[in-house]
């Protein structure tokens, strides 16, 4: 892996203290959109739920170095985040706009590896292994628009995996998929997390999804939005779409997260 392990001191992947975003507003409206402090542990699967427009995407982009912040400190593995850190990749909700329609699956995969230091065979191997992990090995020569929505999102995940990340930032990645595809991808992601020990910060507005996937669920609410509640999820892994969702702990958490959201 490419990330400098000397920087790991705190055991946290992301640390975020007093992070504010007010989009240039000042005075009354300058209270801002976001005022968040949180930590994400190494290898943790953290899910964040919040209502529409509360600032989930903004927070994720700040963590990923894709958006500036008005104030506060963000670090990844002890290093301040000013631009996208090595080892952190964001996966976007709108997969169709995030892929290159003029490139085949295979060529979309190589986007993150171009200009890198990897030798050709190693690059090939990375791409093949990432495509294998999401079950797209047979579609290498297709174009994104020839794939179903679920397959396109798998491709975006595989493209991110190919750069061998230490952390995934996922912004409602399954938000526009049908229920069956969504369930399949949830289980694939959970399995991937188990295999790679990656840190995952997963934003969703689906409470059940947050509880089903997370080691911990954070509820983002308020104006400016902050961490309103936190819930540890001790449901055993691997989780199961039917049985896990029937367990009393699942139902109880689901109930409490909904309450925290004020629904």
């Amino acid at each position: 892996m490419v990330v400098d392990h000397r920087a790991v001191e705190t055991g946290f992947a992301f640390e975020c203290e007093g992070v504010r975003e007010s989009f240039g507003g000042s005075g009354a409206e300058g209270r801002g959109v976001l005022d968040v402090s949180l930590e994400v542990g190494e290898g943790e699967f953290l899910t964040i739920v919040g209502g529409s427009g509360v600032g989930k995407t903004t927070l994720l982009k700040i963590l990923g170095g894709l958006a500036p912040r008005s104030a506060g400190r963000v670090s990844f593995r002890g290093r301040p985040v000013t631009s996208p850190p090595e080892g952190v990749v964001m996966v976007f909700q709108d997969y169709s706009r995030s892929l290159l329609p003029w490139r085949t699956v295979d060529h979309n995969m190589s986007l993150g590896l171009e200009g890198g230091r990897l030798a050709k065979p190693e690059r090939r191997e990375r791409i093949d292994s990432a495509l294998g992990k999401v079950g797209l090995s047979d579609s290498k020569r297709k174009y994104p628009w020839q794939l179903s929505g679920g397959m396109q999102q798998r491709l975006q995940i595989a493209r991110a995996l190919a750069v061998a990340p230490e952390a995934f930032l996922m912004d409602e990645p399954f938000g526009s998929l049908d229920a069956i595809t969504k369930a399949t991808l949830q289980d694939e992601l959970a399995r991937l997390h188990g295999e790679t020990q990656m840190t995952i910060v997963f934003v969703t507005h689906d409470v059940e999804e947050a509880v089903y996937l997370g080691d911990r669920v954070i509820v983002l609410a308020g104006k400016p939005a902050g961490v309103a509640r936190e819930f540890d999820v001790s449901l055993k892994r691997p989780r199961h779409q039917i049985t896990t969702r029937e367990q009393p702990e699942f139902l109880d958490l689901r109930h409490r997260v909904h309450l925290a959201l004020g629904q």
């Binding site: 964001m90 986007l111 993150g112 200009g115 991110a160 750069v163 930032l169």
Partner: peptide, 16 residues
């Protein structure tokens, strides 16, 4: 916006 963000999160250089 998404394409810009995708390129940035994959750490492509500006020229690339």
């Amino acid at each position: 916006r998404e394409l810009h963000d995708a390129a940035r999160t994959l750490r492509l250089s500006r020229s690339r």
